[in-house]
Amino acid sequence: MSEQRNLRVLIVEDEPGDERLMRLALRQGGFTVDLSTVSDGHEAQRFLRREGERFGHASRPDLILLDLKMPGQNGLEFLAAVKQDERLRAIPVVVITTSTLDADVLAAYQHGAVGYVQKPTDINEFIKAIDKLGQYWFELVRLPENPE
């Protein structure tokens, strides 16, 4: 990837504890990414469309990490909306969730997710998981250049 700027990651997650854990895990993995967090699908859509004062200067993320179970708009509805939007659909969305249901796995991929990660409850396992995710998305693959 280009070295000029940090990659930008949007976390869609209603649990503040999980967000803190994510920041910790990314730091542990040595990934210098710019993180933004929103707490449900509706807020994520406002972020991506830069609606309102809070999101007026929001930057387009290079990757979205998405929880499935949230109040407001849930993860699958949000995923479907992003993948139907011509301007947003190229942003890869990885699902990170506690759900272990086969139906959720299948639905996530059907709706265009590019990975389904089951959140490990153990903190060391969580750090290892984020390391693998980071190696793939931040080191190995090329993401679309982000003009913003």
Binding site: V94, V105, L106, G115, V117
Partner: peptide
């Protein structure tokens, strides 16, 4: 190394459909 990292992500970390 690229295939190793690809494998770590798709075959170790994530759940795939119809696995």
């Amino acid at each position: 190394a690229a295939i190793r990292d690809l494998g770590d992500y798709w075959f170790d970390l994530v759940r795939l459909p119809h696995q």
